[in-house]
Simulated assay, not measured.
Amino acid sequence: MIRTIPAGGKLYLNGEYAGITPYKHRDTKIVGSTTDVRIEMEGYEVFYGYFSRNEKADVGAIIGGVFLLFPFIWTMKYKPERTYELKPISTDKQ
C-alpha cells in the first residue's frame, strides 16, 4: 500500500501514471528490482523517490526454493506499506 499525507496524490511508477494515493501496488518483479516513484499534488512539492524488492524476506518462497529447486528470484518482498509526507510549496518570497 502506498499512501501520502495528505491523501490524493497523483502516483507515477517508473514514469507511468499508476493512480491516486492510497494505492495498492502489486507486481511480479524479481529480487533487486527498483521502482521509481513520483508523486504530484497541487500546492505541494513534487516527491521523487524509489523502492526496491529487497526489503523483506519471503520465507515461503525460500522454503519452496530449497525443496522444489526453483530459482530464488522471488524470495524478497516489499514492505507491506509505505507512507510519503508531501511538503507544501513555500509561499515565502525572500
Rank of each mutant, 00 (worst) to 15 (best):
K10G: 08
N54L: 01
G15S: 11
F67V: 15
P71Y: 08
M41G: 11
Y84F: 15
A18K: 04
I20T: 15
A61V: 01
N54K: 03
V31R: 01
T75C: 00
D27A: 01
G32Q: 04
K93Q: 09
V66D: 07
F51R: 03
A61S: 13
P71T: 11
I89P: 00
K93G: 04
K24V: 15
Y17A: 09
I30C: 04
P71E: 13
M1Q: 08
F47L: 11
E45V: 08
Y78V: 06
K24F: 12
E81N: 10
M41W: 07
K79F: 12
R26L: 11
V37M: 08
F47W: 10
T4E: 01
M41I: 12
T83R: 02
W74E: 13
G64F: 09
Y84L: 04
T34K: 13
K10A: 15
D36K: 12
P71R: 10
N54P: 00
Y23R: 04
V59S: 08
V31C: 10
H25G: 05
V46R: 12
I2A: 05
R26F: 10
Q94I: 15
V59A: 13
I73L: 00
T91C: 04
R53V: 09
M41C: 10
G8N: 07
A7M: 09
L13Y: 04
V46K: 13
Q94W: 09
G19K: 00
T35Y: 07
W74N: 12
Y50K: 10
F72R: 08
D58F: 02
T4M: 04
G65A: 12
G15K: 08
V46M: 11
E45D: 14
K56S: 09
T4K: 04
E16D: 14
F67D: 07
R3K: 15
Y50D: 08
G49Y: 05
R26P: 00
V59K: 03
D27W: 00
G19P: 03
R26I: 13
Y17L: 11
I20C: 07
M76E: 00
T34Q: 13
G19L: 02
E45G: 03
Y78E: 04
V37L: 14
H25V: 14
Y78W: 03
K93A: 06
P6H: 07
F47E: 04
I73F: 03
G19Y: 01
E45I: 07
Q94E: 13
V31S: 05
A7Y: 05
P88Q: 14
Q94V: 14
R53N: 04
I63M: 12
I30M: 07
F47S: 06
G8R: 05
V37K: 01
G65V: 02
L86Q: 11
G8C: 13
P22R: 09
L68Q: 14
Y48P: 00
I63D: 05
F47G: 02
V66I: 15
E81K: 09
